[in-house]
Amino acid sequence: MVLTYIYHVILINEAEALQEAAKVLVNGEATHHAKVVLLTDAGSVLDALDSTKCPEVNALAQAITTLSKTASKLVLQWIPGHVDIFGNDVADQLAKEGGMMEQIQHNPSYNEAKTLINSALDYHWRQEHPQHNSKDAIHKLSRAEHVTIFGLRTGHNRLKHH
């Protein structure tokens, strides 16, 4: 649930950033009949543009359509994040600073509230258990394997009958 919410927020933020860039370029004289390349490290936005099932990017699609009418050529290009591409690190830093600013208050939906509560609980649990290592091999075991190990450790198994 938390990952779905985070994915949704990132998708919307990245889509809004691209939408704002497209609006600025449409209003600029330098982009009329020019080749325009929009770079993003959010492949999810580009995937969402290909899908008709994602209403969150409708405004972005409309802004891109408007921009494509003024530019001679428009390219949307995915770039890998955090690989020292000029501008990408600056954009990531600005996004991080924006995320730290006070946000406009709104009444969250039930699912948003549930996600925020779960995120807060998870954050506090991780603060109280700094020694927890989720990459430990024990966390890769299935539930059935955990049950078997528990049974062996506690003596609750069929071995004691032999």
Results as ranks from 00 to 15, higher is better:
Leu25Ser: 03
Gly98Thr: 01
Asp89Ile: 02
Leu25Met: 10
Ser68Asn: 12
Leu18Arg: 06
Ile117His: 10
Glu20Trp: 05
Val90Asp: 08
Pro130Asn: 13
Trp125Asn: 10
Gly87Phe: 01
Ala42Tyr: 02
Cys54Trp: 02
Ile138His: 00
Ile117Lys: 15
Leu3Met: 07
Leu38His: 05
Asn118Glu: 08
Val24Ser: 09
Ile138Tyr: 00
Asn118Ala: 14
Asn88Ser: 02
Asn157Met: 06
Leu25Lys: 05
Glu145Phe: 04
Gln19Phe: 01
Lys135Phe: 14
His106Val: 11
Asp92Asn: 06
Pro80Glu: 05
Thr31Ile: 05
Gly155Cys: 04
Ile104Phe: 13
Leu46Gly: 04
Ala113Val: 13
Val45Phe: 00
Lys96Val: 09
Gln19Asn: 12
Pro55Lys: 12
Ala30Lys: 11
Val37Gln: 11
Gly98Val: 00
Glu112Phe: 00
Leu38Ile: 07
Arg143Tyr: 12
Ser44Arg: 01
Gly155Val: 00
His82Met: 01
Glu16Cys: 08
Leu38Asn: 03
Thr52Met: 08
Val90Ile: 12
Pro108Ile: 05
Gly99Ile: 05
Asn13Gly: 12
Ala113Ser: 10
His32Gln: 14
Ala21Ser: 04
His124Leu: 15
Ala61Phe: 01
Gln93Lys: 10
Glu128Val: 03
Asp92Phe: 00
His162Ser: 14
His146Gln: 15
Gln127Cys: 13
Leu46Ile: 08
Ala144Cys: 09
Lys35Asp: 11
Leu159Ala: 13
Glu56Val: 00
Leu141Ala: 13
Leu67Thr: 12
Asp47Arg: 15
Arg153Asp: 10
Ala71Pro: 10
Gln127Trp: 05
Gln103His: 13
Met101Asp: 15
Asn58Phe: 07
Ser134Asp: 09
Lys114Glu: 11
Ser51Cys: 02
Leu121Tyr: 14
Leu152Gln: 12
Trp78Leu: 04
Ala48Trp: 03
Ala21Asp: 00
Tyr123Gln: 10
Thr40Arg: 08
Ser68Gly: 09
Ser109Asp: 05
Val75Asn: 15
Pro130Asp: 12
Val2Met: 03
Val9Ile: 15
Asp136Lys: 01
Glu145Gly: 10
Val57Arg: 00
Ser142Gln: 04
Ala48Gln: 00
Asn27Leu: 07
Val2Pro: 01
His139Trp: 09
Gln62Arg: 10
Phe86Pro: 14
